[in-house]
């Protein structure tokens, strides 16, 4: 297993990593391409960079975070095509990419984050140990 920083993994702005605050996380990156093309980071106001490919698998504050950048492939989630599948302890987190390249999740929907790692870590902090519920909340009709 090769240890690399989140910055190398995703090509994101360093500020996001500071905000995320973890140094103990173990990250495993696989997949072919090296997404580092946008040094300004995904939070840049115009031209969002490409969605990264590969996978991220780390433990953050005691929770297993898995991000699969399927490049449009569906990995069993309910999300829009082209978005990564994001899981916390095996349960999928609904995430969305904004037009400016920033990200939100259903747990932090009104606040934007520069990349998928930042948005899933924010969700872990908010959850305070609680398990994600399946998509289509209880009683869903929509």
């Amino acid at each position: 297993m090769k240890k690399i920083t989140r910055r190398q993994a995703l090509g994101t702005a360093a500020g996001a990593l500071t905000a995320a605050g973890a140094t103990a996380a173990v990250i495993k990156v696989s997949g072919s391409s090296s997404p580092g093309a946008d040094p300004k980071g995904a939070a840049a106001a115009s031209s969002p960079g490409p969605i990264p490919t590969g996978t991220i698998d780390e433990v953050y504050e005691g929770r297993r975070i898995q991000i699969g950048f399927g490049g449009g492939e569906h990995q069993g989630g309910h999300h829009s095509p082209g978005l990564p599948t994001v899981r916390i302890d095996g349960n999928e987190l609904h995430v969305m990419r904004n037009a400016d390249g920033s990200w939100v999740s259903v747990v932090n929907h009104y606040q934007t984050f520069p990349d998928p790692v930042a948005v899933v870590r924010a969700a872990v902090r908010d959850l305070q140990g609680a398990a994600l519920a399946p998509f289509g909340p209880t009683g869903s009709t929509s």
Partner: peptide, 20 residues
């Protein structure tokens, strides 16, 4: 149960409304 149906509707749109 009426209240919760409003919550469900709102979340359905939150997850379904996308920029593209």
């Amino acid at each position: 149960g009426s209240y919760d149906r409003f919550v469900t509707t709102h979340n359905g749109f939150i997850m379904g409304d996308t920029d593209s």
